[in-house]
Design a binder for these strands. Sequence first.
DNA 1: CAATAGATCATCT
DNA 2: GATGATCTATTGC
Length: 212
Amino acid sequence: MISVTARARFSSNVLTGRGARVYESAVVPREFYARPAAEVARDLVGKILVHGGVAGRIVETEAYLGTQDRAAHAWRGPTERTRVLFGPPGHVYVFLVYGMYECLNLVAEPDGVAGCVLIRAAEPVTGLDLMRRRRPRAVRETDLASGPGKLTMAFGIHRRLNGADATRGPVRVHWPVAGEPFDIDATPRIGIRHCADWPLRFVMRGNPCVSR
DNA sequence: CAATAGATCATCT
DNA sequence: GATGATCTATTGC
C-alpha cells in the first residue's frame, strides 16, 4: 500500500436550508477534471457528491485510464457505450454492472482523451432518511453508500443520467467547506482481472464508509 | 468470520 | 453465447 498525504479538508456538518437540504459550497469546476485520471481520482477523495436530495463525502475512488488500461471500458477505443469517456471532462458516465447495479463515474482528461474516475463509496452527510428509504437493506449508517452499487442506490443515481454535466446538471460535486486534514492511501483496484496490481484505488485512511 | 452462489442484462465476441 | 468496475443471503467452520 502506498500512502499519500493530502492537505485537503472536509466538512462533517453541512449546512441545510429550510425544508429542502441545500449544499452551499462552490461546485468543482471543469478544469479540475481536465487532468490525468489518477490525479483526479486522488483529489476527488474528500469532495462532496450531491444528487437526489442527498449529499455525501467521497471516501473511495478508482481511476480508469484510456486505451492503455485493459481494465477500462475505454481500452478498445470509442463505441456507442463509451462515447462520453472520450468527451469533455466533468461529465457523468453511468453504466450497469452485473445486470443489476449502476456505477457512477466522472469523466477526466481533456476533451478527446479517455479516462474516468469510479466513485466507489461515500460518507452520508445530508438526507440520511432518504438514503435509508432507498437502501432498506442497510443496517449501519456507514453501509448506506459503502460500495459502487450501494452508492448509486443511496443517491438515486440511474443510468439515464449518463452524459450529464457534473458542473451544471443534477449530479454535482462540491468543494468541502472545512474540516480536519486526512490521509489518502493508494491500493490496487477492486473486482477487475486486467492490470489488477496498478495502484489506482484511493481511499480516505481509516474512514469506516470505505468498501470491504 | 470466510467462502460461495444467485440474481440479471447491456455490451461485445 | 460469454462476460462482467456488485450486493446479499446462506452455508459451513
